[in-house]
Design a protein around this nucleic acid. Sequence first.
DNA 1: CATGAATGAGTGTTCATTCAT
DNA 2: GATGAATGAACACTCATTCAT
Lengths: 200, 200, 200, 200
Amino acid sequence: MPRVTPEHTAARRRLILDAARAVFARKGTRAATIEDICAEAGISAGGIYTHFPSKAAIREAIHAEARAANRRFPAAIRAAPDPLAALQDMAGDMFKLLDAPELQADHRMSLQMHADAVTDPELAASYAEIHVDMMHAIRGILDEAVAGGRLPETLDTEYLAWTMVALYQGARVQKLLVPSLDTARLGQMVRRLLAGVLGG
Amino acid sequence: MPRVTPEHTAARRRLILDAARAVFARKGTRAATIEDICAEAGISAGGIYTHFPSKAAIREAIHAEARAANRRFPAAIRAAPDPLAALQDMAGDMFKLLDAPELQADHRMSLQMHADAVTDPELAASYAEIHVDMMHAIRGILDEAVAGGRLPETLDTEYLAWTMVALYQGARVQKLLVPSLDTARLGQMVRRLLAGVLGG
Amino acid sequence: MPRVTPEHTAARRRLILDAARAVFARKGTRAATIEDICAEAGISAGGIYTHFPSKAAIREAIHAEARAANRRFPAAIRAAPDPLAALQDMAGDMFKLLDAPELQADHRMSLQMHADAVTDPELAASYAEIHVDMMHAIRGILDEAVAGGRLPETLDTEYLAWTMVALYQGARVQKLLVPSLDTARLGQMVRRLLAGVLGG
Amino acid sequence: MPRVTPEHTAARRRLILDAARAVFARKGTRAATIEDICAEAGISAGGIYTHFPSKAAIREAIHAEARAANRRFPAAIRAAPDPLAALQDMAGDMFKLLDAPELQADHRMSLQMHADAVTDPELAASYAEIHVDMMHAIRGILDEAVAGGRLPETLDTEYLAWTMVALYQGARVQKLLVPSLDTARLGQMVRRLLAGVLGG
DNA sequence: CATGAATGAGTGTTCATTCAT
DNA sequence: GATGAATGAACACTCATTCAT
C-alpha cells in the first residue's frame, strides 16, 4: 500500500511538467537538459524518472496537455449566445492572449514544439490534429451562420477557418520576435478584415 | 599565386551552407550534427572548420543569407507597374510559394530558426529585423497608395502590413504541419479578405 | 583519403582489446567501465568509439579472438608425429598453461565470460561451440587411435573427450581460486588417470 | 512481547535469500538489481534493508549458505559403510546432480560467484576454502583407504582429490553451456578413469 | 588545405541506498 | 516493521572541436 497519496503524485507530476514547460520554453526542447528541468523543479537528477520514463515522455505529456487545452476552446465559443459574434470578438480580442504574461511560456513552448514536429512525424501528426481541431471548431460556427442565413452559401467556410488559424499562429510568432508589436492594433486590423467577409 | 583560388573557397562555403540548410531543415539545428552536415556535403568533419569557426557560425551564415534574400523582396514588388495590385496578387499567389518544392527546405529551416531565435536573443533581434523589413516593404506600398488617394488616410497601414506578414508566417507553419492544405483556396480567401480593405 | 595507416588502426584496436581484457579480467565485464578501459589503454573516454560501437562489441571482439585462438589448438596437436602421445603429454603438461603468467588474464577473462554466457543466450551458444570444438579436436585424435587399433573400439571417445575438457576448465577455475595449487602434481595425476584408459 | 517474532524475521530473510539466489542465477550478481530481487520476493525496495545492510551482504549471506551446505558433504559420505566405494559411486552418480532441476539455479549461482571471486579477494579466499574443504573431505576418505591397505601408499591422495573437485567444477560449467551433454555417459567415463587408480 | 582519429565535457538514464510516512 | 518516492553518484555513449599527418 503506497504511503504516498495520489494527490502527492499528481502534484509532483505537475511540478515536473511546469518546470519542463518553463525550461523548454526558455531553451528549446532539445537544448533543455534533464538537469535543467530538475533544477527548475527543485528535485534531484534521478527524481524525474519516478514519474516519467524519459525526456521524450515529458515532452509528449506537455504536448498532450496542450492538445487537451485546445479541445476546450470550441466548447467555450459555442456556449456564447451569438457564436458568430463571439468568434469575431475573439478574433479581435484573441490577440489579448498574445500579451497575457502567464501565456508567454506557452507561446514559446508552442513554437519549440512546432519546430520539433517538423522533425518528428509522430509529433507532426499530433500537431496537425490540433490545427485541424481549431479549424473545425471555427468552421462549425461559420457553417451554422450559413445555415441560419447570416452568411452567404458561397462562403468557403473551411478556408476562412484555416486563414484565421494561420493568422493566430503567425501573430504568436510575430509577437515573440517583435515584443513591441501593438496587439490591440493588430486585433483591430484583423477584426476589420473579417468584417469585410462576415459583416458586422 | 595562391594555390587555392577564391572561387574554390566560395564554392566550398556554398557546398557547406547548402548541406547545412538541408540537414537543419530535416533534423533541426540542434539535432543536426556536424557529421550530418559533412556527410550531406561529402566532406570530412574537420574540413568544415577551415571555412566556419563553429556550428553556430554556420547557422548564422544561413540566417544572414535568408535575411539578404528577404531584402530583395521589396525591390521586386516596387518594380511592378502597379505595386498595390502586385501586392494583392502576391497575397493571393504568394501561397504558391508554400507549395514550391525547392522552398520546402527553406520553410522548414525558417521554422527551426524561429525556434532558435526564441532561445537566442541575438538571433531573435536579427529575425525581428527580417519581420520588420517585410512589414516596412509592404507598408511602403500601402502608404504610397494612400498618398495617391487610392486608399483612405484612415487606414492603419502599419498593422495591415503586420497582419499580412503574420498571415504568411502562419500559413507557412500550417502547410508544413498539414500538407494536404489547399494553398490555392487559402490564397483565394486571403485575397478576398484583403479586397474588403484594399478594394479590388 | 585517410591519413591514418591500417596498421595504426589495427594497433589502436589491439591496444583497446588488450586493455579491455586486462580490465575485464581484473574487475569482471560488468563492473569494468569504459573509463577503466580507456585509462588502462591510455586513451580518452570517447576514443573507444572510433573503433568499437559499444562496450558489448568489445566484449564480443574479445570473445571472438578467444574462439579463434581455440580453433588453432586442434591443428597444433594434429601436427605432432604421434597425436595420441601428444595429447597425453599435453594433458600432463597442459597444466603448465595454468601457471603461465601471460595467460593469467585469459584465465580470469574466460571465467568472466563463462559467467556472462549463462546470462546471455547468444554468448552461451558461442561459448558452447568453443567447448564443442575442443571436444571434437580431442575426440578426432582418439578416434584415429581407435581406427589404428591402438585403443579399443568400445571406448566412448566422445565422452572421454568431454571429460578432458571439463578437467581443463575445472582446473583453470581451481588454480584461480587456490593459487597455491601445485599444477605439476595435478598434471601427474591427470596423466595417471588417463594412462588407465589410454595405456602408456 | 515483541511485535515481530524471530520466526517472522527468519522467514523474511529466507524469502529474500531465495529470491536473490534465483535472480543472481538468472542475471548474474552484478546485473541483478535490488528491485529485481524485491520483485521476485514480492516485497518493497526499502524492505530489504531491514534485513541486510547492502546488496553485497546478501551475496555474502548466500555464499555463506553455500559454504555451509558444502560442509555437510564430508559427513554424509563418511557415514557410508564403505566410504571409498561410496566416493566412487558418487563420482559416477554425482553427475546426476548436474541434471537435478532444483539445483540448476545453484549451478548458475555458483558460476556467477566464482566470477565474482576472481574480482573480490575476500570472496576468493572464502571460495578457496570451499574448494579446500571439498578436497580435504575426499582426501580423508582416500587416506583412510591407504591406511587400511586398500590403496597404495604411493598414491598422491591430495591431488587425486583436487582432480576430482576440478572435474566436478568443470562438468558443472560444461553442462550449463552444453545442455545436451549426456551426464550419464560422462559419469560412466569418470567412474572408469577412477577405476584405473582406485580399483573397482 | 583536407582528412578523420582523438579529445573531453556533457547527456539521458540507472540503481544502491535513505528516510518520511 | 514495511513502504516506495527521492536522492545522487555513476555509467555508457555523443558530439563539437582540435590537430597530427
